[in-house]
Design a binder for these strands. Structure first.
Lengths: 107, 107
DNA sequence: TTGACAGGTGACCAAATGGTCACCTAAATT
DNA sequence: AATTTAGGTGACCATTTGGTCACCTGTCAA
């Protein structure tokens, strides 16, 4: 009943971790210390979250001296998408979302 | 720190719920009883999972007499995708995944 | 070389989660 | 009308999870 993407889904379940992904989506290559300052949490909590994201493959890291740089990896996100949206449905869905966005912009 | 897609991410975190989505992806419009038979769990557990999926908007339902029909809604999945993959990156990522798939097919 | 800085580990605790059960309502069947 | 069938509710329990802390290693700078 468990699958290979299990770690990815579990990683995405927490709002703090999604916020970390947002930060890395906005700007890649940040250190852990740099990311800590953005969360209302001790560095231990942030470190734990980054570890979960890294083990899920959503974040990849590179060591540079005593620093650890973090990068967003979008591949697992796309795999989630492809699991429940086939190439045919994709067009309808994106059209729907664009429509929704348009409607919300002009009230 | 919490966002509107919170329910969607939390719903996707559980393997049983993802399996239910797989079932509905394969064939829509099933009743709860029909779905129960596919899970190694009492009907109460399945009902709870379906409720979580419905509240997240991943599943929409329609009543028909005493039956409740379930349908997969792909829109939230696409929204997850769009959050961390911009139109430009999308091309690279899909190309990467296609490449990976090709390589795994021919060993 | 001494101290400051970046990061890692394991234990620990409160809160959330998955699953079951006793009990309920409403629709279909006989 | 009586029974079966589809589904819903709230309490309950075991396990998992998010977060903190004391303590550790390795790297850079004065």
């Amino acid at each position: 009943m468990t699958d290979e993407l299990d770690l990815v889904f579990r990683a995405l379940a927490d709002p703090s971790r999604r916020f970390l992904l947002d930060l890395l989506f906005a700007r890649d290559g940040r250190t852990q210390t740099e990311l800590e300052s953005e969360l209302a949490m001790t560095r231990f909590g942030v470190a734990k979250h980054l570890k979960v994201l890294e083990e899920a493959g959503l974040v990849v890291t590179r060591r540079s001296g005593r620093e650890k740089l973090h990068f967003l990896n979008p591949v697992p996100i796309r795999q989630i998408h492809d699991r429940w949206i086939d190439k045919y449905t994709e067009q309808h869905v994106t059209a729907l979302i664009d429509l929704k966005r348009t409607l919300e912009e002009e009230p």
